[in-house]
């Protein structure tokens, strides 16, 4: 474990908590893409099937929290507060993300076993899972500031993981190209948002995308 990965995981945890609190407190999931949240639930389910393999208390605890929180979020969006779910703007065709991710996982992986292919699928899936949410923000042309804080924390987590991979390569000579390439793609997808967040939201303005 290193500081980059720890802060990255905590940023990830913060993002998930911000989102859950936003939906629970405002009793509304307006502006939130349910499709992205379903993709995240798929990501954690397919990645943490190795939950029984004990790595550390921290590892097991975080996996359980991520799985539970992702399903709780999907439940809140599609069941409890489904009246506030914005169908009209959450229209990204997720099949164009799931299928290519799965096919790519079958073609490019470290080991052609069920667990390893599913882990690889979760890595590819996670790198594009935020697209429906970013697409929804671009369609509505704006995002509540709490939603942009969620996106900033979520985007920062994988950006910090890149620093973790650099650190691990230089100190432990350990690297995983699949995770690194997907993590770079994932972080690049946030760049446009990061720019808007830093230039606008941090100055107290609302996140308005140029229409």
């Amino acid at each position: 474990m290193n500081i980059f990965r720890l802060v990255g995981d905590l940023s990830h945890l913060l993002a998930i908590i911000i989102l859950l609190l936003k939906i629970w407190k405002t009793r509304s999931c307006a502006g939130i893409s349910g499709k992205s949240q379903i993709l995240f639930a798929i990501v954690y389910t397919s990645r943490y099937l190795d939950l029984p393999n004990f790595v550390s208390m921290y590892n097991t605890l975080m996996k359980i929290v991520f799985i539970a929180a992702s399903y709780a979020t999907v439940y809140l969006i599609y069941m409890k507060f489904k009246a506030t779910y914005d169908h009209n703007h959450d229209t990204f065709r997720v099949e164009f993300l799931v299928l290519p991710s799965f096919v790519l996982a079958l073609l490019i992986n470290h080991d052609f076993t069920v667990l390893e292919v599913l882990w690889t699928f979760s890595i590819y899936m996670e790198s594009v899972a935020i697209l429906p949410q970013l697409f929804m923000v671009s369609k509505t042309g704006e995002a509540e500031s709490i939603t942009s804080h969620y996106l900033f924390a979520l985007g920062s987590y994988r950006a910090l993981y890149i620093l973790n991979w650099i650190y691990r390569y230089t100190t432990e000579d350990h690297y995983d190209l699949i995770a690194i390439v997907a993590g770079i793609v994932q972080t690049v997808l946030y760049c446009d948002f990061f720019y808007l967040y830093i230039t606008k939201v941090l100055k107290g303005k609302k996140l308005q995308l140029p229409a």
């Binding site: 990965r5 790595v55 590892n59 975080m62 996996k63 991520f66 080991d111 076993t113 667990l115």
Partner: peptide, 10 residues
């Protein structure tokens, strides 16, 4: 037997 790559990261 290719040893199963361990994924110790979340």
């Amino acid at each position: 037997q290719v040893e199963e790559p361990d994924h110790d990261e979340l």
